[in-house]
């Protein structure tokens, strides 16, 4: 009986703590959405800011006047989608080679790939800028796509997953006269769909939120991604952009990715993301 009561208390405590944590996670996002709907006549300060008596899209209209939202959104979508598609393809291709082929130096090369994660490419920002300039890729959206076509983390992740694909599947296809690249397209890719989906989600989010590389490589407003223009909002109207307009900008950046995440979450079986890294 005592044990039973103790269990209920523990259960109650755990649920309460989790509800508080969830509240802290979601509060800034909801608050941002609320403020972005506030007409300029209402107060922004203090507790009263939570109450919106007269919601309006005025702030969004002003946002579209201040910055070229559609152009920047296109830039963001382009780099995000191109980046994700190319990265998925090349990472799984390399992961496939490391997982299902035996070739001299394989283990060494694989550890080498992992070791490259320890020194982030950002430390070489100065020469990278020069290289991009030589390649004529400054102010080009491709500068955000090409360097990360095949990333070490992606290869590592795909490798872990493809290792679990039974060798017999590959062997059988070989006996049937399937060429290596076709094995990859026809056998491997369909089998690792869950891995592709969760890695796609991770990459999509990372690319959409990318800030350092766009700010480094893109130096014209028409070429900015959404993230760069948003970061410049506080100074774009001569230091006096009203807060609701800035927050309507951040809402525009955050809400699509939140919606996408929730959609993916309901489409996928829960916990597929949780398998991202196996110990």
């Amino acid at each position: 009986m005592v044990y039973r009561r103790k269990q209920t208390t523990v259960s109650f405590l755990i649920h309460t703590v989790l509800i508080i944590i969830s509240f802290l996670c979601i509060m800034p996002i909801l608050w941002m959405c609320l403020i972005s709907l506030k007409p300029s006549s209402e107060t922004l300060s203090g507790i009263h800011s939570i109450w919106v008596s007269d919601p309006t899209f005025e702030n969004y209209r002003r946002l579209f006047e201040t910055i070229p939202v559609l152009q920047n959104a296109f830039n963001s979508i382009f780099t995000t989608i191109m980046g994700t598609v190319t990265s998925l393809f090349f990472c799984s291709l390399a992961g496939f080679a490391f997982a299902k082929y035996k070739f001299p130096g394989r283990d060494f090369l694989f550890y080498f790939v992992i070791a490259t994660m320890l020194v982030p490419p950002e430390t070489g920002a100065v020469p990278l800028f020069v290289i991009m300039k030589k390649l004529n890729l400054i102010n080009s959206l491709w500068s955000l796509v090409i360097p990360r076509i095949a990333t070490a983390v992606g290869i590592f992740y795909m490798h872990q997953y493809i290792c679990d694909v039974p060798d017999e599947l590959v062997e059988a296809a070989k006996i049937d006269g399937c060429k290596d690249f076709m094995i990859f397209i026809k056998i491997i890719l369909p089998v690792i769909k869950p891995a592709l989906a969760s890695w796609a989600a991770v990459t999509l989010i990372a690319r959409w939120n990318d800030f350092f590389w766009p700010v480094l490589y893109l130096r014209k407003q028409v070429k900015y991604t959404l993230m760069v223009t948003i970061s410049l909002l506080p100074v774009s109207e001569g230091l006096s952009t009203p807060w609701p307009v800035i927050l309507s900008g951040t809402t525009l950046v955050i809400i699509p990715i939140v919606v996408l995440y929730l959609l993916l979450q309901t489409l996928q079986k829960a916990g597929a993301m949780a398998g991202a890294v196996k110990g």
Binding site: C25, I29, W31, N209, P234, G249, T250, I257, Y261
Partner: peptide, 23 residues
């Protein structure tokens, strides 16, 4: 709980930084 507690990670640091500046 899992979905909600993961939400902060998908929000861009730049956008959240602006919100935090106001908070």
């Amino acid at each position: 709980f899992k979905t909600v507690t993961f939400l902060p990670n998908i929000c861009a640091a730049i956008a959240m930084g602006l919100i935090f500046r106001m908070l």
